[in-house]
Nucleic acid binder design. Structure first.
Length: 758
DNA sequence: ATAGGGTTAG
């Protein structure tokens, strides 16, 4: 919202004031003009009060004491005190009239009347009457008719009362009735609060604009800031009606008046700006405030660090940490936690460990912050995520010994995931047992982590058992549990089971989210049931889950594999209509399709569009082309691309590329060339796998080149590469036929060869 | 601080 530049003062706010003393205010704030001036003799307030309270108002004229009292001009504060003690609004009003009729024009100064009126209002507020706001409004009108100026307290009292009764117009009327000379920042704040909470935002901003003026009569204070920020916050204007930039501009104007954000607001704003992707604005806000003299603390710095971390802007993070050091703002455990977390998320675990070591205190910095459990867990997770789960495990032990923290569910979950991802399901299961024995309660994340590990390593049935066991212990599955199971069943082509799970989940009180639909779509595509996948896609859309790029790619790939290029085109069009742009995967899928159809010209056209779109061909692109040329029987062209990759692109060939070529060479009776490529792999540090060796063995079998096969078998063992059912098939057939069963037996020793054909 | 989908190879 743009703040209008006001030319005319709103609500009769004066644009400038003469510096003048507001007598009433001074009295009321307990200050006297001159504390050394001798005080006049005390006036008998309590005697007057008891006389008034014991006499009917019609008889007041016959009491000389009263009349005399009013003829010597009383202090306005004495009148205030007296009126306050009269017990009822009615009596207070009677006294007011009595006082007015008896005081000379010189003695009935406006402030005397104001104070008396103020006391009447206070009295009315205290009385148990049904409609206080309308009673007060009557009194307000009464004062207006008699031209009694409002004291600042009376105005405050009236505005507060009308505001509570949601009588915005009346609140504004009171403010307008207040003599501009007697207004102050507090009463303007009150008006501002009424306007914002009453929904009169435009006028609210106009008033605020005047307050924030360079030579404002009512410079803003901390309350003004609080009122305006609360208004912005409650209406959730960030990113809607009021932009981050506008909020920044507004707050800086407060800074220029020396009014700064407290830690809570500063932190809130920084967090919010960062979440709207405006870290630079959060940065400016913090720095503007400090530049103009405000003080910030570690929490606010932490909020900004966290935002910068999400953007992986380590340069700025370091800059900010150094600023903290310069300003002697001590980083706390959260500061280090943020830094370590984001280093871990960027796989910079060694740097994270260095920061961790530094926390413990170093000669140069003397920083000493004790790491907490969260920080240890962050590091353990970071280690696990880069395949260093064994170090993660050791860190847990170290944590126990050195810091005395017992691992919690999160610690175990991180380690279990680490060992699962490394395929060490047994270790994960041991950790799971250990946690249960240690009284650490597994949660749904533990279940999902372990379940995923089991499913991905061919133990779906154990996974199902685990799920049942956990359900028995009160751990219910969630959408993620079902995603894991559905994905797993699809991957072993058990579509019925996957569909059943999908249908069952809602009955178990667990409703499918987008990713459950996606997993089913992907699984069906993978299982070559593209039409079914397409149906599920329609269902997903009906349920309000638009497809994402991964789904579209899977469907496009599925139709391509089925040779249904028209359907694939429809999907591409659908995708475009949904506003989703093709990515590297889409292009590679299409390139793979066209080149396998030997439409190399089209494949190259797609590749050009891919480059125009900003995606350089990667190892998969080249792999698709190489594979297609091999299939087309043009191994020479495939080899040319392979050589071109190494010489003129920055794309090093991977195992898949080598496997494709080795297989093609061996099949076209060029085993020597294949073996030479295997040597090349070793030189380039590309790990051969079972597929590599199988291709070689087949080629060697064709030539009956036994000695070479024995060499390669030894190499395979050295490389800890497990034979699979294809290796078994080739070698048993060949070696038993030529009576080399002993070599075969020793080769297979210690292997548990999977016999599944999955 | 911890959990769930994707492109190339036999």
């Amino acid at each position: 919202m743009k703040l209008p530049a006001t030319t005319k003062s709103l609500l009769h706010l004066p644009t400038r004031t003469k510096t003048g003393t507001i007598i009433g205010l001074r009295y009321f704030s307990g200050e006297l003009d001159d504390p050394h001036k001798p005080l006049p003799p005390p006036q008998p307030v309590s005697e007057i009060v008891s006389l008034l309270n014991t006499t009917d108002h019609n008889d007041w004229n016959s009491k000389p004491q009263l009349v005399e009292f009013l003829h010597t001009p009383p202090f306005p504060t004495s009148l205030l005190k007296i009126t306050r003690q009269l017990g009822s609004t009615e009596k207070a009003l009677q006294f007011f009239e009595f006082f007015k009729s008896h005081s000379s024009s010189s003695s009935s100064s406006p402030s005397s009347l104001s104070f008396t009126f103020q006391a009447i209002l206070e009295q009315a507020m205290r009385e148990e009457i049904s409609d206080v706001p309308s009673k007060l409004y009557q009194l307000f009108s009464f004062a207006k008719d008699r031209e009694i100026p409002l004291s600042i307290n009376a105005a405050t009292l009236l505005i507060r009362c009308f505001d509570r009764a949601k009588m915005l117009e009346e609140s504004i009327a009171v403010f307008n009735a207040l003599d501009p000379e007697s207004r102050n920042t507090n009463v303007v704040n009150l008006l501002l609060d009424c306007l914002f909470r009453g929904g009169n935002i435009d006028d609210g901003f106009k008033v605020l604009d005047e307050m924030l003026d360079r030579d404002s009569s009512f410079p803003p204070n901390e309350s003004t800031m609080d009122i305006i920020l609360s208004a912005i916050w409650k209406r959730n204007w960030v990113g809607r009606r009021m932009s981050v930039e506008e909020i920044c501009g507004l707050v800086v104007r407060f800074f220029e008046h020396g009014v700064f954000l407290d830690d809570v607001w500063l932190t809130k704003l920084i967090t919010n700006f960062c979440r709207s992707g405006k870290c630079n604005k959060a940065w400016d806000l913090l720095h503007d405030m400090m530049r103009l003299g405000g003080q910030a603390e570690a929490v606010s710095f932490n909020a900004l660090l966290s935002g910068l971390g999400r953007e992986r802007d380590f340069e700025k993070m370091n800059l900010l940490m150094n600023e903290m050091k310069g300003k002697e703002i001590k980083p706390d455990v959260v500061t280090f936690g943020i830094l370590i977390n984001h280093l871990c998320k960027s796989y910079k675990v060694d740097e994270a460990m260095q920061v961790f070591e530094k926390m413990g205190g170093s000669e140069s910095d003397g920083i000493l912050v004790k790491p907490d459990l969260v920080l240890y867990n962050t590091l353990i997770d970071g280690l696990c995520k880069v395949g260093r789960q064994e170090e993660g495990f050791k860190l847990m032990e170290k944590m126990r010994l050195e810091s005395g923290y017992e691992p919690n569910t999160v610690t175990y979950n991180c380690l279990i995931d680490g060992f699962c991802k490394a395929g060490e399901i047994e270790r994960s299961y041991e950790l799971f047992d250990q946690m249960k024995k240690g009284g650490v309660v597994p949660n749904v994340i533990t279940l999902n982590t372990l379940l995923d590990g089991m499913c991905k390593h061919g133990r779906v049935n154990s996974g199902i058992e685990l799920f049942a066991e956990m359900q028995g212990k009160g751990v219910k599955g969630n959408a993620i549990t079902y995603t894991i199971l559905i994905t797993s069943f699809c991957s072993v082509n058990n579509i019925d089971k996957a569909m059943n799970l999908f249908n069952e989940m809602s009955e178990n009180g667990c409703f499918p989210d987008a990713k459950v639909y996606y997993s089913l779509i992907l699984g069906l595509c993978q299982a070559r049931r593209t039409n079914d996948a397409s149906c599920v896609a329609s269902k997903a859309k009906e349920a309000g889950f638009g497809l994402d790029i991964i789904c579209y790619n899977a469907l496009i790939g599925g139709f391509c594999r089925k040779n249904k290029i028209d359907e694939a085109h429809n999907m591409l069009r659908d995708m475009e209509e949904a506003g989703i742009k093709p990515d590297r995967y889409t292009y590679n899928t299409l390139i793979s399709y066209f080149s396998q159809k030997e439409q190399f010209a089209t494949a190259h056209r797609v590749m050009k569009r891919m480059i125009d779109d900003g995606y350089l061909p990667n190892v998969v692109t080249y792999g698709a082309l190489i594979h297609a040329y091999c299939l087309a029987g043009n191994v020479d062209e495939a080899m040319k691309i392979f050589q071109n990759m190494s010489s003129s692109t920055n794309v090093p060939p991977n195992t898949v590329i080598y496997n494709t070529l080795i297989d093609a060479l061996c099949k076209s009776d060029k085993v020597e060339a294949g073996i030479s490529l295997l040597g090349d792999m070793k030189d380039k540090g590309v790990r051969p796998n079972t597929i590599t060796y199988n291709a070689i063995f087949k080629g060697l079998q064709e030539r009956n080149w036994v000695e070479k096969a024995f060499q390669i078998m030894d190499q395979m063992t050295e490389n800890a590469c497990n034979p699979d059912y294809i290796t078994m098939e080739v070698l048993t057939q060949w070696l038993s036929a030529i009576g080399e069963t002993e070599k075969l037996r020793s080769f297979l020793e210690g292997y548990e060869v999977s016999t599944s054909t999955a």
